[in-house]
Design a binder for these strands. Sequence first.
DNA 1: GGTGAAAGCTAGCCGGC
DNA 2: GCCGGCTAGCTTTCACC
Lengths: 153, 153
Amino acid sequence: MDRLDRRILHELQQDGRLTNAELADRVGLTPSPCLRRVRQLEQQGVIRGYRAQLDPVAVERGFQPFVTVVMRHEDRSTVAEFERRVAELPEVVEAHRLFGDPDYLLRVAVADLAAYERFVTDVLSGLPGIAQVHSHLTMKQVKADAGIPVQRG
Amino acid sequence: MDRLDRRILHELQQDGRLTNAELADRVGLTPSPCLRRVRQLEQQGVIRGYRAQLDPVAVERGFQPFVTVVMRHEDRSTVAEFERRVAELPEVVEAHRLFGDPDYLLRVAVADLAAYERFVTDVLSGLPGIAQVHSHLTMKQVKADAGIPVQRG
DNA sequence: GGTGAAAGCTAGCCGGC
DNA sequence: GCCGGCTAGCTTTCACC
């Protein structure tokens, strides 16, 4: 993994649909070696895949609070059951088990406040082992997800 | 935006490098109308772009804590300055200003614990207006970012 | 929404450094 | 070992039905 690979990763993180010809041009290679490097990065798992970035509002998922969860009992089977069910919820876009307090940090994506209220009351509260749920609504996105910095940084 | 558009969005969120021919096949269209829909979704901003998903460990950004920040003074210029500088930090992948407490939630990406220690002491603590910084390390990712659910859900 | 044809891109193979 | 040139085959992208 040299400087060239990093530049390739950087470009593909900015625009995952670059043609190989254009990518080669940007990183200063001809198409052949450039494609070889891309394929190798894919095979090594450095590039995990490619994804279209969607506008959450357009697909009715514009309301994205963070939710922290504190658990009551931490017996193994309750925790496992909680995690299994959280992972299955489509509204939960991402879930982390943290060290210390709170126990979990979830990122939720629903249409609006009303949908969120229904989600918390009807779905989330029903999961086993929960002691407390706190909602953190974002007032303003100070920095949008810009991807992982690949070069210097 | 009909059922077909949603299926297109779903497929492109799973694999942003699908060829138009393959995409058309999956959603049950021929390539021409399929491409027209994709272009329209792009122009409308429903599709914001395409991105390669990288393995954070491979690019030395495998340590990704969440950081909460509580501010001391909330006078306008200090807050603005804080936000401006946070947004410029490459280690900060995402930053949200929240309602209530804490004031900010940041997602940080660095190589390891040692790099994180340096980041907090040398960089983050130097920003203006901060009262408290709390680090939340993730023990386990219960659900990895699966993208926004586009269909039903 | 579908068809067809031109232009452009991909991906493998080869030689050269 | 990695780069660059070449070519066959496929994909994209039009105009038109």
